[in-house]
Structures are given as C-alpha cells and as structure tokens.
Design a protein around this nucleic acid. Structure first.
Length: 491
RNA sequence: CGGGGUGUAGCGUAGCCCGGUUAUCGCGCCACGUUUGGGACGUGGAGGCCGCAGGUUCGAAUCCUGCCACCCCGACCA
C-alpha cells in the first residue's frame, strides 16, 4: 500500500481524510455516515476518556447509563429542543422482521409497528429529565451530578471521519441544582475542566467563551464553549457546557421541596465532548509526514527499533533493549519494542512517523559497541546520539519537552491568527487571505450575525469570557457595540 | 436534501463514448534467495460474480432503469 500522504498545502481536507485512514485511526463502514474506529484510534480515545473520567469524578460526578431509545413524545416536551434536533433524528418504527414472500431476504413486518415511535438519542436531556423527576424530591437530593459515556446519533447530511459522523461517541453530563447560581457555577466549572484537558493533555490551546443566541444549544439559556483553531485557519468547537435554566425542569415537571418548604423547579446544566476531539487533535499538530501526538495521549510514547544483519546481532541488541524497556516501563513510559524481522528499519521509521509516536529509538551494532543509541523526536524530527546510561531521564525529560513544544507551537499559531479589524472590508480581507479568528465589534443582533454569515461564511465562534469592555461600532451596521467578538469560518 | 463526480483484486487504476477471445498496469500479498543505520532487489505465484438489483441483446465492465456507498460544492450540524 502506498503510504504517501497528500501535503497539507495541496489539500488540507484531503490530507486529513488520508491521514485518518493511513495512520490506522478509523475508516468508513458499510453504514452511511458511520465510522469504524480502529484499535490505534480507539486507544487514543481511551486515553482521553480515562483522563476526562478522572476529572469528572474529581469534581464530584458519578457515571450512570440511560437508554439508547427515547419515546417520541419525550422529545417534543421542550419546544426549542425538539426544533433543534427534529431534522436529524433516526426513528425506530417497527420491532420485527419477517422473511419476504418472494424469498429475496427479510422485510419489515408491517404488523409489528410500534404504537409510539422511538427516537435513537441525539442527546439525552429528555430521557434523563424524565428520570430525574422521580429521583428528586427534596433539596437533600441536590445537587445531582451525573455523567454518561454513550453513543448518540445525529443524521448528518455530510459526514467526515471524527469531525462529523452520523453516530459518534461522547460523554454527556447532566446536573440538577437548587439555585441558578449553583447551576451557572457548574456550567463554568465543567467548561474549565474541558479547557484544562484540551490544553494540558491535547496540547491544544482553546478560547473559552459564550455562544451567541443563534449558536446556542437547543433548549439552553446559555452555552459556554471552548474553541480551538486548526492549522488551516478554521475554528473547531471542541466542547460545550450549557446552562439550561429551568427549561427542562419545567418541561418534565422536576420540582423539589426547599428548606423553606416551598415547591421549586430545579436548575440544570448539561455538558459534553465527543470523538470530535480526535479530529481536533489530528488537525492541531500533525504534519505532512503524518500524525503528531502529544505524549500524554500517545498510545505508544517510545518505539525502539533494532538494526541488525543477523540473528546474533538481534539477540545481543534485544538483551540491551529489554533492560531499557524495563526501566522505562518502571517510570510509567509506554514503550514498544518492534523486533519484527518482517519489516526493514526504514519501513518502520516511516510507519511510526505516520502514526505520530513521539520518540523513536534506534539501536544497531555500532551503538552496542559504543554504549549509545539514536533517539529521534517526532515533533522536531531532530535526531541525537546519546549514551544508553542516560536514556531513562532523557526520555522523561524529552516527552515533557515535546508536550510543551506542541502546545507552544499551537499557541503561537493561534495568537498570530487572532486579527482585530474595524471595518467590514478588513474583515473580509482577513478571512480570505489569512483566516483564523477575526476579532470585531458586532451590534449584538442575530440579523447582523446571519447577514455576515451569508456574505462571508464566517460565524461568531464565541464572545470570549475574559473579554474587555471596549466601546466601538459594529463592523457591519455601524451600530454601537460594547465589546469585540470572535468570528471565524468553522468546522 | 439540491448541484457535480466516482465505484473494476486489499489499495490506486486502464478498458466504458463506439457491446464481441483468457479484463490492463502499479503497489501490496504469498514462496524462495540475496538484503537490513531512512519506505530493498530478483525470480516465481495467488488473488476479480467489473458496487448491488433488474432490463435490452445471440452476447454486457461497456447500453438503459432503480438502488447503495464514497468524494467535491451548497443548506444543516458536536
């Protein structure tokens, strides 16, 4: 199989599609819009899950599991919610198949029609709030803080591996609180958890912000988000945390008795990140040779490749390598010794570069004689010969350096791709010639936002949380504005 | 879902307009030998219901109809 990757500049989108497949992360399946996540890709997702799950538990959440199917009537209880999702729902109408009379296979049995259709969950607010009604009676039952790891289905028109698939994996947190403030704090807390994860583990800088009304989650009063910037200058929404107010409590009649003995509706949040993070990870760091993985999420952090002419040499190298492997594992480094004789060293070098392994060690007869080895960094492609005695500390130190370097590189790109503009002409010019985030004044209306989107395809990604108040004029209408917002073309 | 395009071996493809021997080539795969510090080389070999289902025809990869999948551009979106 030819492993030559399209270069990013020759087609970013083509590069991405090829990379996902060639690096063995995922592939399209026989089911429209649905992907198969392959073991190497799934291993990265598992590392993401493990860290996020740890963070959720640390902040007082518990995992549970709710049904895949949602009765149609549940979905329509919250008006904005059903409006937002109705157009992309998979619906179960029957529960049985039978053999076709003409022997051509099986057909849906028309006698097995469900009285009420079931929706394959596009998100679980409705089924969860229907459950919470029974779980919450008193202020003593609050706060209720639950997370679920699940798959959801949204019948998207155009799909792309990891970025937008009809079925995707995610986690969704759903919490219930006594007061508005407590719910708002929860939504902000989880946004910070996501941001921390993105920056510290994915090495992906993100901007924390608020969505405008038109970009808000269906059924939310406020949507917080983290936005990343990909190498092609397009923004990617990497996670959202919603303050749901009392909308779902009212729709599902979830009330509690307060300390004062009053019956009150609870306040809610929901928050989620999905396998889309895989797409974000790939597009933030990878290059024309393939994947570049931050050490904290790399399934293999160090690969060791022996170079030998015969079995005796391989045996001698293996003795030394096995010692090193043992030492590294003791320190918690994930190491693979690829001693397959069925592939040549050059082939392996290229293969592990494609797969983004952060560090590669090569050891041959020369090294054995000199007590050295060759170590190569995936991020800088820099090669060094070092003494075998110093390998463990060198690896530990370098993995940390790579993690930081990837973050700083991405941050530098992001920082140089936030452009302040004051006129619509400048705005269009930056979008077309430079891309990235464009910081501009906006009059605060959905009408203006829509018009700008129609004309430029750019949307307001967020109103940054740390925004400074600054008098200005909307770049489109010239109306008064009190702060800049971030526009960008987005995935 | 609208416009455009493509489905031929695991992957990439020729052939299709203009129907007619055994469906082309490269990579990969298997065997043997030589190789192994950046994707090795030679020799031999295996692998195809030409996306699926109908139709036209003496005869279909090729023509017609329907369906499915994928890619690009829109609308929708985590």
């Amino acid at each position: 199989m030819s492993k030559k990757l399209t270069k990013r500049e020759d087609g970013y989108s083509k590069w991405y599609n090829e990379l996902v497949v060639k690096a063995d992360l995922a592939e399209n399946s026989g089911v429209r819009g649905c992907m198969v996540i392959k073991p190497y890709g799934y291993a990265i997702w598992e590392k993401m899950q493990a860290e996020l799950d740890r963070k959720f538990k640390e902040t007082g959440h518990e995992n549970a599991y709710f049904p895949l199917f949602i009765p149609k009537s549940f979905l329509s209880k919250e008006a904005a919610h059903v409006d937002g999702f109705a157009k992309e729902c998979a619906v179960v109408t029957h529960y049985r198949l039978k053999n076709a009379e003409d022997g051509s296979g099986v057909v849906v049995d028309p006698d097995a029609k469900l009285e009420e259709e079931l929706i394959v969950r596009p998100t679980s607010e409705t089924i969860i709030w229907d459950t919470y009604r029974r779980w919450i009676e008193s202020y003593r039952d609050l706060p209720l803080k639950i997370n679920q790891w699940a798959n959801v289905v949204r019948w998207e028109m155009r799909t792309r591996l990891f970025l937008r698939t009809a079925e995707f994996l995610w986690q969704e947190g759903h919490t219930a609180h006594e007061t508005k403030n407590e719910a708002l704090e929860e939504a902000e807390l989880m946004l910070n958890v996501y941001a921390e994860f993105a920056e510290e583990h994915m090495a992906m800088p993100v901007i924390k912000g608020l969505k405008t009304e038109s970009e808000r989650f269906a059924g939310a009063e406020e949507t917080y988000c983290i936005e990343g910037l990909m190498q092609d200058g397009k923004a990617l929404q990497a996670g959202t945390s919603h303050f749901l107010g009392q909308n779902f409590a009212k729709a599902f009649d979830v009330k509690f008795t307060s300390k004062e003995g009053k019956r009150e509706y609870v306040w809610a949040t929901s928050w989620g990140v999905s396998t889309r993070l895989m797409g974000a990870l790939i597009m933030t760091h990878s290059d024309d040779l393939g994947l570049v993985l931050p050490p904290k999420l790399a399934p293999i952090q160090v690969v060791i490749i022996p170079i030998h002419r015969n079995d005796e040499q391989l045996d001698a190298i293996s003795v030394k390598v096995n010692e090193i492997v043992k030492e590294l594992r003791k320190k918690g480094v994930s190491v693979k010794y690829d001693n397959r004789t069925t592939y040549k060293p050059g082939w392996k070098f290229a293969e592990y570069e494609l797969k983004g392994v952060p560090l590669r060690i090569a050891m041959g007869p020369r090294d054995l004689e000199n007590g050295t080895l060759e170590i190569a960094r995936r991020d800088t492609l820099e090669k060094k010969n070092i003494s075998q005695d110093t390998i463990v500390s060198y690896v530990e130190k370098t993995l940390e350096e790579i993690q930081n370097n990837l973050y700083n590189k991405a941050l530098d790109y992001r920082e140089t791709h936030i452009t302040e503009v004051n006129t619509f002409e400048e705005f269009k010019d930056v979008l077309n010639n430079k891309a990235g985030f464009v910081s501009a004044h906006w009059d605060g209306t959905t009408a203006t936002e829509d018009k700008i989107k129609d004309l430029t395809k750019a949307t307001i990604r967020c109103i940054p949380l740390n925004n400074k108040i600054e008098e200005g004029k909307c770049i489109f209408t010239g109306e008064k504005s009190v702060q800049r917002v971030l526009f960008a073309k987005a995935y």
